[in-house]
Simulated scan of single mutants.
Amino acid sequence: MINIALQGAEFFAYHGFYPEEQKLGCRFVVDIEVSFVPPEGLNDEDLDNSVDYEKLYIIACEEMKHPRKLIETVGQSITDRIKNKYPFIESIRVIVKKLNPPLMGKVAHSSVIINYPSAK
């Protein structure tokens, strides 16, 4: 089993339930972790037998550009695109953190964690 991770990818985006959040935007951090068994092994150093973390970043970047009311939806969209791009992946963990969410007090971040397959 191989694990590949992309940690701390930062984005400015317009996700949020309230109109002010969708207008002003906010900083977000995305972490992605995937686990898989290479379909053909890794002895030939062929990137097609692995997960390209640059592609993971591009998927996250593209999904962060589409404003949504819930960061849960953002995390699920990222997860779904990774599953479609790399069908041999056995597990995916996506964490979307909203930095300094607009609350009544100081909060470092709120977050959502999407796991595939989901725990039952």
Rank of each mutant, 00 (worst) to 15 (best):
N43D: 15
C26V: 09
S118K: 13
A9L: 13
H66R: 15
T73E: 13
V30Q: 04
A108R: 08
I59R: 05
V51I: 08
V107T: 14
M104G: 12
R27Q: 10
I78H: 03
H15R: 08
V107L: 11
V112S: 05
I82R: 02
Q22E: 11
P38A: 09
I114S: 01
V96Y: 01
P67F: 03
K85Q: 14
G8C: 10
K120I: 14
L24Q: 12
A9W: 06
Y116I: 05
P87C: 07
E45D: 12
Q76M: 08
I82V: 12
H66F: 10
L6G: 03
V96N: 01
Y116H: 12
A13S: 10
Q76F: 07
S110I: 12
I78T: 05
D46W: 03
I71C: 06
K69M: 09
N3R: 15
G16A: 13
Y57V: 00
A5S: 13
V112I: 14
L103H: 06
A13V: 01
G8Y: 10
M1A: 13
M104P: 01
D48C: 12
I92S: 11
D52N: 15
Y53H: 03
T79I: 05
D80L: 11
V74K: 07
Q7L: 15
K106H: 10
E54M: 00
D80A: 12
L70W: 04
D44C: 00
S111L: 12
H66A: 13
I114P: 04
H15T: 03
L103S: 07
